[in-house]
């Protein structure tokens, strides 16, 4: 049984597709940002790629955090000063927002920067 020219081409082509698929697979999800919400008791994490509303409870009341178009922000909070709402949108590595009266802390990061931040903190 001998391989003919297009057998060889088919093999090389398949190997190529296999490698491309694998490399493409590695690159997917790499740079997806996320937001971490810290409350008094819990730590929550959400990808910034999906829009959603998150309600968390704190000592003062409820804080509503909105993820929208790859950014996160306090939409409302049951605190007196609303400073957190005025802090606006965050999305990049190391950015943060907080509602101190309600003890809710918000920070964003990307997968790549994650390790650097960790390394710096610990």
């Amino acid at each position: 049984m001998k391989l003919r020219i297009f057998d060889v081409i088919a093999l090389i082509f398949s190997l190529g597709v296999f490698l491309l698929f694998t490399i493409y697979g590695r690159s997917v999800n790499q740079d997806e940002g996320y937001v971490i919400i810290e409350t008094e008791d819990d730590q929550l994490i959400y990808p910034l790629s999906e829009d959603r509303d998150i309600r968390v409870e704190g000592p003062v009341g409820e804080s509503l955090i909105r993820i929208d178009h790859g950014t996160a922000r306090f939409e409302s909070s049951d605190c007196d000063d609303d400073l957190c709402v005025h802090m606006g949108e965050i999305h990049g590595a190391g950015e943060w927002a907080a509602c101190l009266p309600n003890r809710v802390f918000l920070y964003t990061g990307g997968n790549e920067d994650d390790r650097e931040v960790d390394a710096g903190v610990y």
Binding site: M1, K2, L3, R4, F6, D7, I9, A10, S14, F21
Partner: peptide, 27 residues
């Protein structure tokens, strides 16, 4: 592959292409 490339391809090449397509579709 069979109609277009024979006789310069055997069942080995054809099977490899078939497996690739089917697996890619299912993945």
């Amino acid at each position: 592959c069979y109609r277009g490339l024979r006789p310069r391809i055997t069942f080995i090449g054809i099977s490899v292409m078939g497996a690739l397509t089917s697996n890619m579709a299912q993945i």
